[in-house]
Design a protein around this nucleic acid. Sequence first.
DNA 1: AATGAATGAGCTTTCATTCAT
DNA 2: TATGAATGAAAGCTCATTCAT
Lengths: 195, 195, 195, 195
Amino acid sequence: MVRKKKPEKYKSIIDAAVKVFAREGFHNAKIQDIAKEAGIAHGTVYIYFDSKDALLISVFEEKLGELIDYVKSEIEKIESPEEKIRRLISLQVEIMKENPNLTELMLVEFPQTGRFLDCSAMDRVGEYIELITDILKQGVSKGIFDSDIDSDMLATIIYAGIYGLATRWILEKRDSPAKEMVDGIANMFLNGIKS
Amino acid sequence: MVRKKKPEKYKSIIDAAVKVFAREGFHNAKIQDIAKEAGIAHGTVYIYFDSKDALLISVFEEKLGELIDYVKSEIEKIESPEEKIRRLISLQVEIMKENPNLTELMLVEFPQTGRFLDCSAMDRVGEYIELITDILKQGVSKGIFDSDIDSDMLATIIYAGIYGLATRWILEKRDSPAKEMVDGIANMFLNGIKS
Amino acid sequence: MVRKKKPEKYKSIIDAAVKVFAREGFHNAKIQDIAKEAGIAHGTVYIYFDSKDALLISVFEEKLGELIDYVKSEIEKIESPEEKIRRLISLQVEIMKENPNLTELMLVEFPQTGRFLDCSAMDRVGEYIELITDILKQGVSKGIFDSDIDSDMLATIIYAGIYGLATRWILEKRDSPAKEMVDGIANMFLNGIKS
Amino acid sequence: MVRKKKPEKYKSIIDAAVKVFAREGFHNAKIQDIAKEAGIAHGTVYIYFDSKDALLISVFEEKLGELIDYVKSEIEKIESPEEKIRRLISLQVEIMKENPNLTELMLVEFPQTGRFLDCSAMDRVGEYIELITDILKQGVSKGIFDSDIDSDMLATIIYAGIYGLATRWILEKRDSPAKEMVDGIANMFLNGIKS
DNA sequence: AATGAATGAGCTTTCATTCAT
DNA sequence: TATGAATGAAAGCTCATTCAT
C-alpha cells in the first residue's frame, strides 16, 4: 500500500503552530519548536508548508475559517436578532475560553504579523463583520433595533468591542472572562440600540 | 514625578523609533533603520538605550505617558461625566489621526511584543482605564448613569471598544475615522448606560 | 572486460542523470529531479546507486567508456594517420552535436566535480590521449609527420585543442560547430606537424 | 578619524575566496572557510559582498580583469605578431604557474558555476579572444600569416588550445608545464598558419 | 560623545538519504 | 522491488551588539 501524505500530520502541525506561535509570538517561534511540539522532525514541516510565513497564513486561514463557520452555524439556529447578538458575544467568549492559544494568536499576532503577509484570512474578518451587519439589519427591519443606526458602523463597533475586550482579557490573563462581563457588554450594546 | 530632562538626541531616537517600529513592526525594524531615520550612526543608539528591547520599552513609556497625561488634563477641564466620555472618545480619535504611527505602534505592536517585555508601560494602561472608571463613578453618583452598572467592567468595555475600533481603523488604513463613528460609539455607550 | 548487463532501469536513471546534471549542474541537480525525469520514485535511485556521487561516477564511466569505444572502433577502420586525426576531430564534433547534454557534462561538470571523486573515469581520458599518441607515432614512423614532434605532448595539445574548442562551443551555445572549424583545426594541427 | 571601509579587506576576502573556491570548488566552499582563510568573522564577508554568488562574480571580474590587462600590456610592448603569439602563450603559462589557484578557478569553476550567474566576466573572455584575433590580423596584413586563415576562428582555436592545455595541466597537477610544451604549442600553431 | 567596521549566535531552509510499508 | 514521507545535518545569511578610533 502506498501511504498518502497524511492529513492528520498537517493538522497536527497547524495545532502545534497555534500553541507555539501563541506562546512565543511568531517571530520568536522557531520551526524547530513547532516540530518538537508536533513530535516530528523540523524538516517535515516543510513537506506540508512552504515556509514559516506560509504556515502562519495557513494557521489563520484554517482556524479563522473554522471559527467563523462555527459561529455562523450557531447563529443561524436562532431567530431573534437580539438573541443572535447575545449568542454571538457569548460564543466568542466561549471560544476564547476553550481556545486561549488560538484566540491569543488571532487577536495579538494576526494584526501584527498578518499585515505584512499577502493573506486571504483578512477577508474572513470582513465576512464576520458582515454577519453582524446582517443581524443588525434584520433587527431594524423587524422594528427591534433603532432605525437610525448605521448597521455597518455599528457592526464594526460591536466587533471592535468584542475584539478589544478579548484582547484585554488575553493580555491580562484573566482566568474567567466572567459571565457578567458577557451580559454586561451585550446589555450595553443592546440597550444602546434598541428602539 | 521627577523625570530628568532627556537630551535632544534621546528624543529624536524615540521619535525615529516610533516611525520605524510602526512602519516595519518591531521585529522587522533594524536599529540601522532607526539610526538612519534619526540621522545618526547606529552605534549611537546604544549610548542612549541599552538594547533594542529597552528602546521599545522607552518608546512605550515615554509616549504612552505623554498621551495619558494629555487626555487626563483635557478631561479635567470638563464637568459633565457624559461630556467627559464623549471628549475621551473624540480625543482618542484625534490623537489617532494626528499620530497614526504612534497609534499603530501602541495598538498593534505593544500587545504583541510588549508582553514579552518586563515593562511598566502596561501599568499606564491600567491608569487610563481607572480614568474611565472614575468618570463613570462620578456619573453614577450624580445620578446620570445607571447605578446598576459595574464601573470597572464598563470602563474596560469602553476602553476595549475604543481600542478595538481604533485597531480596525488602523488595520484598514481608513483615511477618516469619521466624525459619525465617534458620535455613534459615544451614543451607543451612553444610551446603553444612561439612567 | 566483463560487464554484467545492467537492468533497463539502471540505464534509464543514467540517461536521466545525464540530462539533469547537464541542465542544472551536478550540485544544483536534485535526485528528485532525476527520478522524475526517469519516471520513477526518488527512493528507487538508491536501489541502483549508492549515492548521488556514485551516480555521477557511474554516468562518467558508462558514457565516457561508450564514447571512447565508439571513437576507437571508428579510428581503427582508417589506415592513414592524417585521416585518423581528421576523423578523430570530426567524430568528436559529431558526438558533441548528437549528445550536447553528455558533452556538456563531460566538459564542464566532469573537470569540476569529478576531481573530488575517487573515480576511474579519469583513466579513460588517459586512454583517449594514448589513442592520439599512437596515431601520431604511426604517422612519424611512416614519415608522414615530422620526427621532431613529441608525440605525448602533441597528443595532449590536440586533445586540449579539441577539448577547449568544444568547451567554448558548449559555453557559447553555438548552434553549429561549423564544418569549417573542424577543417580549420584539423588543418592547423596537421600543417603544423606534417614533415 | 573616521575609518573608511577598508579596501584591503575587500582584497583579502577576494584572495581568500580564490584559494578556497579553488581548493574546495564553489559549492563545497563554505563562507566560514573563506572568512577563516581571510582571518575574519564570516559575517564580515557580507559587509563587502552581498552573497556567496556575488563574491564569486567579484572574484571573476576582479581577477580576470587584472590578468587580461596584464597580458594586454605585455603584448603591446612587442612588435612582431609571431612573437606576440609566443609571448601570449608563455605569459599564460607563467600566470598559471604563479597563480595556480586562480587558474584553477578560472578554468574549472568559472565554466561550471559561472554559467548560472548573470555576470559580466564572460565578456572579458571575449575581449581576450579579440586580442588574439587582432594579433592574427596584424600578422596577415604584414604577410607573415597565411591570408587564408579565418582570424576569428583561429583565435578561438588558439585560445581553446591554451585553455585546454591549461585545463589538463591543472587537472593532472603537473609540477612543471614544461618550457618545451610552451614552445611546442607555439610552434605548432605558428607552423600551421605561417605563410 | 559619536562612529561604523567587525563580530558571531542563531535561524530558516534544503535535500541526500533512510526505511516502513 | 518500488515508494515517498520522514529525517536531520549543514550552510547561507541577518542583525543586535561591541569597541577601537
